[in-house]
Design a protein around this nucleic acid. Structure first.
Lengths: 112, 112
DNA sequence: TTAATATGATGCCAAATGGTATCATGTCAA
DNA sequence: TTGACATGATACCATTTGGCATCATATTAA
C-alpha cells in the first residue's frame, strides 16, 4: 500500500447504502442547495431529507454552511475518496489489465 | 456516460455498509473459504456469519459453490464494479488530473 | 414590530439489521 | 448403517433506520 491513511470510511459506506442519499449526492454534484431545494426534488418530508443530510454530513460526504436563515449543503467529493481507495484494492481482481495503469496513478499521487 | 448499464448497485452498496462484511470480502480475496473457515476468523456465531454471506451473495459480491457437504464461498470482484462505476462519476470533482486517464480507461473498456 | 419563511428538534411508528440460541438436514466415514 | 460434522432454517431480541407529524427557533421583509 502506498501513502493512504484509511480515513475511517465506515461513515461514508453507511451513508452510501441508501439510494435516496446517493441521489442527493448526485443532485449536489450539480449545484449547492438548501434543504428546501433538495426537498422539492423528492417525495418525502423535509424531516426525512434532513435526516439523510445529517447522515451524509456524518460520513463527510457533504458540508453545511450557514448563510442567514438558510443552510447551504455542499458536496464534499473528498469524502468519497476513502471509499474509492478501499475499493481500489480489488481492482487487481476484476481487471488485471488496469493494474499497470493504477500503479501509474498511485505513483503520480505520491509525487504530489 | 459511456456504455455502462448500471447493474443495480443497491445490493452491493447495502452489503458494503457493514464493516464485518467488508472484512469478509478482504478475507475471501486471499482465498476461497467455507463458512466454517470464515467463522474461525471472527468472534460471532456461524449463524451471524451465514447472514452476512447471504447478504454478500445477494449483492453479487460473492458466489457459493457446493462441494460435497461443504459450501465454498468465493469473491466475485465483478460485483464491485457497479460500485466503482457509480463512484467514478465523482472522480472529476476530487481530482481533475485523473479525468483524462479515466476517459482512456473507459475508451479501452468500450473496445473490448 | 410582526408575520412569513427556513430550518431544527422531538416523539412516534413499522420495518430492517445484526446478533443469539436452538433445531433440522445432508453428507462423509468407520 | 450410523454417528459425526458442515451447513441451513427458525424463532427471538435489542437497536437502527427511514419515514411521518408536530412543535420550536431564528431570520428576513413588510
Amino acid at each position: 500500500m502506498i501513502g493512504f491513511g484509511h480515513h475511517e470510511a465506515q461513515g461514508a459506506f453507511r451513508a452510501l447504502a441508501d439510494p435516496t442519499r446517493r441521489d442527493i449526492l448526485l443532485l449536489l454534484s450539480e449545484d449547492d442547495m438548501t434543504i428546501g431545494e433538495v426537498v422539492e426534488r423528492f417525495d418525502i418530508t423535509r424531516a426525512a431529507v434532513k435526516k439523510h443530510l445529517t447522515i451524509l454530513e456524518e460520513g463527510a460526504l457533504i458540508s453545511v454552511h450557514a448563510s442567514g436563515r438558510e443552510r447551504i449543503n455542499r458536496l464534499e467529493p473528498l469524502g468519497l475518496k476513502s471509499v474509492a481507495e478501499w475499493l481500489s484494492y480489488f481492482n487487481q481482481f476484476w481487471d488485471k489489465r488496469l493494474q499497470a495503469l493504477r500503479v501509474a496513478i498511485e505513483k503520480e499521487e505520491s509525487e504530489k
